[in-house]
């Protein structure tokens, strides 16, 4: 399945709902979406990964790049993910310490920072 992206606003957060496969082929589309949001002044992003079926290190690189971009504007990038197969790569790479990871979009929106 290809990548799907939908964005919506919840309070002062912009939620990016990602579905499908994020790999070396599709990750540039996610990167462009994040860059477009930051350029439009959206600095508090929630990336909802509950419908992601596959994520590799290229996808991680895009999320890390997004985090750097929003932090340059004192923003934030939080993840929503409860899928073990997706969380695994965050654990292996130590990025669970870098990204706030929440169990639901509501939790991520309610969290500060």
């Amino acid at each position: 399945m290809d990548l799907s992206l939908e964005t919506r606003t919840e309070g002062d957060r912009t939620v990016i709902e990602v579905g499908g496969e994020v790999d070396v082929y599709t990750a540039p589309t996610l990167r462009e979406q994040i860059i477009a949001l930051v350029e439009a002044g959206q600095y508090h992003l929630v990336v909802d990964m509950e419908r992601v079926e596959f994520l590799d290190s290229t996808g991680l690189g895009v999320l890390v790049g997004g985090l750097k971009r929003v932090r340059a504007h004192d923003g934030s990038l939080a993840l929503v993910c409860t899928q073990e197969r997706i969380l695994k790569i965050f654990r292996i790479t130590g990025l669970t310490k870098v990204f706030p990871i929440h169990g639901s979009v509501a939790d991520a929106v309610a969290a500060t920072g």
């Binding site: 290190s57 690189g61 895009v62 890390v64 932090r71 310490k97 870098v98």
Partner: peptide, 23 residues
Amino acid sequence: LAETAEQAHPDADLDESLPPGVD
């Protein structure tokens, strides 16, 4: 990788290529 991800200052390197060896 973790170190570069923590870079927060405005002139931080926005290069998204992963450090060599992460794969």
